[in-house]
Amino acid sequence: MTQSPEPAFFAHVTDWVFDLDNTLYPHHTNLFSQIDVKMTAYVSELLQLPREEARKLQKELYLEYGTTLKGLMERHQIDSDDFLNKVHDIDYSWLKPDPALGEAIKALPGRKFIFTNGDRGHAERTARELGILDHFDDIFDIVAAGLTPKPAPETYDRFLALHHIAGPNAVMFEDLARNLIVPKALGMKTVLIVPNNFEPTFSEIWERDPAFDDSVDFVTDDLAAFLWTIVNPGQP
Results as ranks from 00 to 15, higher is better:
A54P: 04
A54K: 06
A54L: 05
A54F: 05
A54H: 07
K56S: 10
K56L: 12
K56H: 10
K56D: 10
K56N: 10
L57V: 11
L57G: 06
Q58H: 08
Q58A: 06
Q58E: 07
Q58G: 05
Q58R: 10
K59T: 09
K59C: 11
K59R: 13
E60W: 10
E60H: 14
E60L: 13
E60P: 09
E60D: 14
L61Y: 07
L61D: 06
L61S: 08
L61P: 03
L61N: 06
L61G: 05
Y62M: 08
Y62H: 11
L63M: 12
L63R: 12
E64T: 11
G66R: 05
G66M: 04
G66K: 03
G66Y: 01
G66H: 04
T67E: 01
T67W: 02
T67I: 03
T67M: 02
T68A: 05
T68H: 07
T68Q: 04
L69P: 01
L69C: 00
L69M: 04
L69G: 00
L69E: 00
K70D: 08
K70N: 08
K70E: 09
K70V: 07
K70M: 12
G71M: 10
G71N: 10
G71C: 10
L72S: 03
L72F: 04
M73D: 03
M73V: 03
M73H: 05
M73K: 04
M73L: 06
M73P: 08
M73G: 05
E74D: 13
R75V: 13
R75C: 11
R75S: 14
R75Q: 15
H76L: 08
H76G: 06
H76C: 06
I78M: 02
I78R: 00
I78L: 01
I78F: 00
D79F: 01
D79N: 03
S80G: 05
S80V: 00
S80D: 07
S80P: 05
S80T: 01
S80M: 05
D81R: 07
D81T: 03
D81C: 03
D81W: 04
D81F: 06
D81K: 06
D81P: 01
D82I: 02
D82N: 09
D82H: 09
D82R: 05
F83M: 02
F83H: 01
F83C: 03
L84P: 01
L84Q: 05
L84G: 02
L84H: 04
K86S: 02
K86C: 01
V87W: 02
V87Y: 00
V87S: 00
V87T: 04
H88T: 12
H88V: 10
H88A: 11
D89C: 09
D89W: 09
D89F: 10
I90K: 10
I90F: 10
D91K: 14
D91E: 14
D91G: 14
D91I: 14
D91F: 11
D91M: 12
D91N: 15
Y92A: 14
Y92V: 14
S93M: 14
S93V: 12
S93Y: 11
W94S: 13
W94A: 15
W94V: 13
W94Q: 15
W94R: 14
L95I: 12
L95H: 14
L95D: 12
L95T: 12
L95F: 15
